[in-house]
């Protein structure tokens, strides 16, 4: 599956203390999200990619201390949630 992030100009992110408030223009919906969701969206914003590609982008920016398989599974779960919200599109 290839993942594509919603266009950056459709999303406003505002930091509110420990969490981020995210306004999605296209849907008119507000989401309150904690790490790693904003980081995933930002990394995916560089261009569509698959899970391995996204994990590599995240690993380049952050110290990921989990084994690859676990991190991949967790990332796929987050991505599935983001697809349900319409913030990410999955393409087979």
């Amino acid at each position: 599956m290839t993942y594509r992030a919603e266009a950056p100009d459709q999303i406003i992110v505002e930091r509110l203390g420990a969490i981020d408030a995210l306004y999605h223009r296209r849907s008119g919906t507000t989401h309150l999200v904690a790490a790693p969701v904003p980081q995933i969206l930002e990394a995916l914003g560089e261009g569509a990619t698959d899970v391995a590609g996204l994990l590599a982008r995240l690993a380049a920016r952050f110290d990921l201390d989990t084994p690859d398989d676990e991190a991949k599974a967790a990332l796929e779960q987050r991505l599935a949630e983001l697809i349900d919200l319409g913030l990410v599109r999955g393409e087979r």
Binding site: E14, L16, G17, A21, Y23, G28, T30
Partner: peptide
């Protein structure tokens, strides 16, 4: 009360937050 919690409480207390869209946010 943390900013995030206050934000949630205010959205719950508002009847037109969604209607106002980005301006409300």
């Amino acid at each position: 009360v943390e900013q995030g919690e206050a934000f949630v409480r205010l959205t719950e207390a508002s009847t037109n937050y969604i209607a106002l869209g980005e301006a409300g946010f």
